[in-house]
Nucleic acid binder design. Structure first.
Lengths: 216, 216
DNA sequence: ATGGATCCACCTATGGATCCCT
DNA sequence: AGGGATCCATAGGTGGATCCAT
């Protein structure tokens, strides 16, 4: 059991510089050839190494200390190669939730970022873990996140799901989160009728996570 | 695709007299030693034989013609050995649903009963399928079912889940429907607070299903 | 380089019911 | 023998994310 965030940070920084092959060995797992059929593999390896316990429960990875763990793939210049998934987009706004009560807020309140080399030329096993860092949004970052969240959440509440595009939102945007484009989940349209639509999730743009990583 | 209920009835009656071993052979499946670790096996065999398509979807087994399929285990005297599961007990009465809109009503509107010999002394493979029959509740049966449903549903809406016992209800009653007694699902208590409780289902009592089978 | 599409593991809910203790 | 407890298969949801066409 971890005492506090700093203990977790220290623990995670012991991974700094390890290759995925080295850490996999320590954890007793084998490295897949590529992530094409194991997209979440590195994230789950880090979870295991740090003793994250929440599993698929809808709570923080480290519930006792309220920290969310995120691996982030970086290119040779230190820029994120992928956007960062936060949580599913709730499709039924049964009652109006405030941003401060939202899952997005909870998940972003305190994040342990674990950067991982992700240049395609480097074989997965040889990619190294870089220096982990703790982050909480600044006031300025919170206000942009809140505005994005409000705009997107309002669209859902108004039944405008069909108009949501990934180009909306400055830091936070919405993209599909599904097994395939044929997946369906329950929602409502603009006149309040139940409809089925593609499941989606909130993601952080790479332009935003790049800023976070650089400033830390 | 079946044209109507009578076509389904005729098809099902072609199973009359077959042993489970015979039907399993026709369907290309093997008979388990007992149902101790395969409790739904016979029901799923009959589904396969009749081409039921709904799978785990919350709709009738034969959606086109609105018929629900139920196997029923009978003892040597033709009495049901087990109660009949209908559907899960909804634990969150978000809005007051009428009986005529309820899942119980939908499921019981038209049932194809397929009786199966279930005397313990007969090995599973040798048990025979008896004559299937179609049933819809009479007005008198509907009114008892409705009263039972209303009483039990009201208790849930009033947060009295903890007081529900299987002894309540004349035709319809409520019993656990879970992997184990440790399973939990979300509900509310009498003061409206969220609680976790054992998942339950609506079942038909054997005294009622026995009456249905005898009268048909 | 953006954003729509997709992939695995794990767990839970549901549909099929019967087991088995008191 | 009534009613609380349990069992399997399968689909779907969620958490972990990256793939890849344009």
């Amino acid at each position: 059991m971890l005492k506090d965030k700093n203990e977790l940070l220290q623990l995670s920084q012991q991974l700094n510089g390890l290759s995925l092959w080295q850490l996999a060995g320590l954890c007793g797992v084998t490295v897949p050839d590529s992530q094409r059929r194991a997209k979440g593999w590195a994230g789950q390896l880090i979870e295991q190494a740090l003793g994250a316990t929440a599993g698929s429960l809808p709570i923080a990875d480290f519930p006792d200390i309220g920290v969310e763990l995120k691996t982030i793939p970086l290119d040779v210049n230190g820029k994120p190669r992928e956007s960062t998934y936060i949580c599913v987009l709730p499709m039924r706004q049964q009652y109006q939730v405030s941003f401060e009560q939202s899952v997005v807020y909870q998940k972003l309140h305190c994040v342990l970022w674990v950067p991982i080399e992700a240049t395609p030329a480097i074989p997965l096993a040889e990619r190294r873990i870089l220096k982990p860092r703790l982050w909480s949004p600044t006031d300025a970052q919170w206000s942009v996140l809140k505005a994005d969240w409000q705009e997107l959440t309002d669209m859902v509440a108004l039944g405008e799901i069909a108009n949501i595009r990934a180009s909306l939102g400055e830091y936070l945007h919405i993209r599909p989160k599904a097994a395939s484009a044929r997946s369906l989940t329950a929602s409502v349209n603009a006149v309040g009728e139940p409809i089925l639509t593609l499941p989606r999730g909130f993601y952080l743009r790479t332009s935003f996570t790049g800023q976070i990583i650089r400033e830390n």
